[in-house]
Write a protein that binds this DNA or RNA. Structure first.
Lengths: 104, 104
DNA sequence: TGACATACATCGGAATTCTATGTATACTGC
DNA sequence: GCAGTATACATAGAATTCCGATGTATGTCA
């Protein structure tokens, strides 16, 4: 299950903890969320390309054991966007929880 | 701003507090959330039709002051769906917040 | 009479995600 | 040696969700 719109936030957050690459980001989000969050490759790679085009992340290629990895790191603009998206997220969640009676 | 996917939950929740109609539901969600949540009519009405087709809500028409209102009430299936969606929502939010470090 | 609010509805487009598929390499077990 | 699985990237097509625009119609207030 995924709420549409939260992937960029999760990717930016993941990269704020250190550079990483698509396959690893996907595994990390899935594992660290106890399988609650699980984005498919067909979702993740286009999202990474879009963030790169928007200048929020930048890429460099590394070959490890014959396999090519496309590492991404957060740009300054990406760090700012992360802060904004975090704020937006918490504001939204708080609003929904208030309507739901916040019974949890 | 809206996180896609949360509208059915918000509509079912609104109707769990009493029967209402589209225009009023939209106003209520917007007002009660302090303008944080705001769904347009082009979004809300199709969503109501879909929930009705799915048997989660049922409609009856009332005319007040010459204006027709299409009231909706929650069905039993709708009440069950609301409980499920609430649980799903809180599970999802908890997972995202955990990844974000829950700094709020 | 004109502006605004109420109340419904649909159409077209944009954005996001999933499923499926394809390419290529490395490792493990048989 | 070969099959299966994991790693690692990518794209195409379809479904879903939402918004903006537009349309219809009525009531109220200045």
């Amino acid at each position: 299950m995924n709420v549409k719109g939260s992937l960029p936030l999760l990717v930016l957050d993941a990269l704020s903890k250190g550079s990483s690459y698509g396959y690893q980001i996907a595994k990390a989000i899935k594992a660290r969320s106890g399988d609650v969050l699980s984005f498919q490759e067909g979702t993740l790679y286009p999202a990474l390309h879009k963030l790169e085009k928007g200048g929020l992340i930048e890429a460099y290629t590394v070959t490890v054991d014959g396999r090519r990895r496309r590492y991404y790191r957060l740009t300054e603009a990406g760090a700012r966007a992360l802060n904004e998206e975090r704020t937006t997220w918490f504001t939204y969640v708080q609003a929904v929880n208030a309507l739901l009676g916040d019974a949890q």
